[in-house]
Design a protein around this nucleic acid. Structure first.
Lengths: 148, 148
DNA sequence: CCCATATAGATGCAGTCGCATGGATTTAAA
DNA sequence: TTTAAATCCATGCGACTGCATCTATATGGG
């Protein structure tokens, strides 16, 4: 069934791990140096900012961000504690809740964007042409397994 | 100087983060399910297995693996505790040490390889042709910043 | 309706991470 | 040589992670 990976595949795996490590590390440092929250906060706030007004269910965020359920739960705790999101009871499902972004959540997201944009440019954009970036996007998207 | 990243670049960044997350998660689970140590252990043991007999300096491993110094220090602690590596005083530098793999370290590394190989094949290899894997390798290698 | 099972989300816990700092030694400069 | 700066590695700390488990609600079958 599953054959051994070729050397090229192993190298691609290593490059993937190292590249992401290096890139994430630099992005996180950029946020930290700017006195801003970590990058995961941005991603959640971004999802919520473009979501319908009533917000999203935690399991929705979970699936979009590929984060474990327990981590989403606590990430929302932290965001809520800072007043960036609100938890509301969910009408249609008594077990669930809706998480909605607040005004101050929108503000902090907007403040984070320039830092994020700059870091992405420096760590990723500057190394690729448009065409190469599209190739990376297309190839790597395949790895984000839709079915497990 | 640093311009805003294009949408394609942002998408490439997101794909990179998601792809690595998904892939690492699956690999870690494969090791765990097999009752084996996590993937970082393999990487260190692999470096040491192909290193000269006296081993490597921690800062050497650090640079090869892009892991923070404090984490290397503790990773070596754990490996040493299990008897997979040995720390020896370094002759040429009184501050340093040499880390060398032991026989049982070589054994565990060999036992880990089939699991690792299978996981890499499943998470990466099967989604790419040889040519595509080479492209991923070449493009992503650029992001692993040689100079900071 | 009742019960078994599945799903949403929270939480205890142990392990790991990055950062900041500390102690020891080496290197460079005065 | 004496002193200052840099390098190597360890460690305290607070934060975050994944896993396992728990409670509560929902859903499907009898």
């Amino acid at each position: 069934m599953t054959q051994k990976p070729s050397e090229t595949v192993v190298d691609a795996w290593i490059a993937l791990v190292r590249a992401q490590q290096a890139a994430v590390l630099k992005v996180e440092r950029a946020f930290r140096e700017a006195g801003l929250p970590p990058h995961a906060w941005y991603d959640v706030l971004w999802e919520l900012d473009r979501a319908p007004e009533e917000g999203l269910r935690p399991f929705d965020i979970e699936r979009r961000m590929l984060i474990a359920q327990s981590n989403i739960s606590r990430l929302i705790d932290r965001l809520e504690e800072k007043g960036y999101v609100e938890r509301r009871a969910c009408e249609s499902d008594g077990r669930g809740q809706n998480v909605a972004i607040t005004a101050s959540g929108r503000t902090i997201r907007r403040r984070m964007w320039p830092i994020y944009a700059k870091a992405i440019s420096e760590t990723v954009g500057q190394h690729f042409s448009e065409r190469e970036a599209a190739t990376v996007r297309d190839l790597l998207t395949r790895l984000v397994d839709p079915q497990g």
